[in-house]
Amino acid sequence: MKQLLIRRLIQSIPTLIGASILVFLVFTLAPGDFVTQMSADANMTQERLDEIRALHGLDQPLYKQYLTWMGNLLTGNFGESVLHRQPVTSVINTFMWNSFLIAIIVLVLQWIIASIVGIMAALRQYSIYDSAVTLIVFMAMSFPSFFLGLLMLKFFAVDYQIFPLGGMRSTGSTLTGWADFWDVMKHLALPVIVLTLLNIGSLTRYFRTNMLEVIRQDYVRTARAKGLKERVVIFKHALRNALLPLITLFALEIPGLFSGAIITERIFNWPGIGRVVLDGIFQRDYPLLMGFTMLLVVLTIVANILADLMYGVADPRVRNR
């Protein structure tokens, strides 16, 4: 396992360098920059614009700009956000955890619900239950996030006023302790419901498909032929092997915990990192966008390594490769 970890870490270095070059080129070579945006918003002379570009090193050759940016990244300096007038690390740290709060709750709910519903659908293949689950799953997957979000707001926030319209806390709230906790939970409810409904469909199908594939294997038939109880056959023999392909999927959802849900956060006015990134795109806040994208790159690489390690724990054959 130690050798597997070392090998994966070494292999990730070229990937990280290549991704950093790609991220830098995508944003650097994009038409316009924040200086262009400033010139559109304010009446500046060309000399002043050139001075601002020189101040931020935008007049340097691309390779020098890249080496400077990469060197700053290695020291933890992601630059300064043009839109927020703060270090990029401060902006990300402020808003990312709000997105993480929603994402971790959605992750737990969707995996619990999808595992139960998907496994039961596989065990009752072609039954009324399986057909109903398939229909509901495809209906949930077909709804656009903005439509489902607005629909939830219409019924539960406007018509019946069960949940608040949006935000993270009530306007002007001075609540503390448990009162503040429940206030945040009420504001969390609708975004969590929407994201869970949108994400649960594909995961349910994964569970159903993997379980169907496993319960048709010879070793499952052998276990039944030995007279083992169906509960033991399913949960001890079949379920463990059905979960193996899902380990990778679970690990690869780690970057999504920090990336935010842009459309959902916008609809519910949730102060998450997805909404901040969307504003950064409109304002061409490239330091923020580049820093956040590189953070997701690192998280994705770490998630891949973690997936390999988790798979190695679950399947000893992987460790010896």
Rank of each mutant, 00 (worst) to 15 (best):
I21G: 09
I6T: 14
T89G: 13
M290S: 09
S99C: 06
S127Y: 01
L29S: 10
Q217V: 00
P87V: 15
G291I: 02
V117R: 00
D59W: 03
Q125P: 00
D285V: 00
S131D: 03
P255Y: 13
T45I: 02
N72A: 12
V158E: 06
F95P: 03
I52W: 08
R231I: 03
P87M: 09
W182Q: 05
P164W: 05
W178S: 05
V91Y: 07
G18W: 11
L243P: 01
R240V: 12
A261T: 09
A42M: 10
R124Q: 06
L296C: 11
F156S: 02
W111H: 09
L299G: 04
L249Y: 13
K226H: 11
H84E: 15
L309E: 06
S90G: 12
D218G: 08
A103N: 12
T209H: 11
V192S: 04
M70K: 02
T171Y: 06
L73G: 05
G166M: 11
D41P: 01
I116H: 04
S90H: 09
L150N: 10
L83V: 08
T45R: 14
T75A: 14
T45S: 13
L296P: 01
N77V: 01
I104L: 07
H56G: 02
F78S: 05
L188W: 04
R124W: 08
A132C: 01
L55H: 05
I102H: 12
P87F: 09
S145N: 03
A242N: 07
N43F: 01
A121L: 07
W111T: 00
W182D: 06
F292L: 11
Q110T: 03
S12Q: 10
L83W: 10
T248M: 11
L25E: 05
R8F: 12
D285W: 00
G280K: 04
V313S: 06
I247Q: 10
N210W: 09
D33R: 14
M44H: 07
I119S: 03
G18A: 08
A179F: 00
P255K: 04
A30R: 07
V194M: 11
P164H: 10
Q65C: 13
K226N: 07
A242W: 14
I17S: 09
S90K: 12
R85T: 12
G18T: 14
A238R: 01
A42L: 13
V91C: 02
I247A: 04
N304T: 10
L135N: 05
F163D: 13
P255D: 13
W111S: 00
N320S: 15
S202M: 05
M120A: 09
F138N: 11
P271S: 14
R7Q: 14
W178Q: 06
M185R: 02
V82K: 13
I254P: 01
R48E: 15
L25P: 01
S99A: 14
R7V: 00
R240W: 05
N269G: 14
I104M: 04
T68E: 15
T300C: 04
L190P: 01
F147T: 01
I116V: 05
T204W: 03
A223L: 05
L197S: 02
P191N: 06
R48M: 15
L135Y: 04
E230H: 00
G260L: 08
D50H: 04
A54R: 13
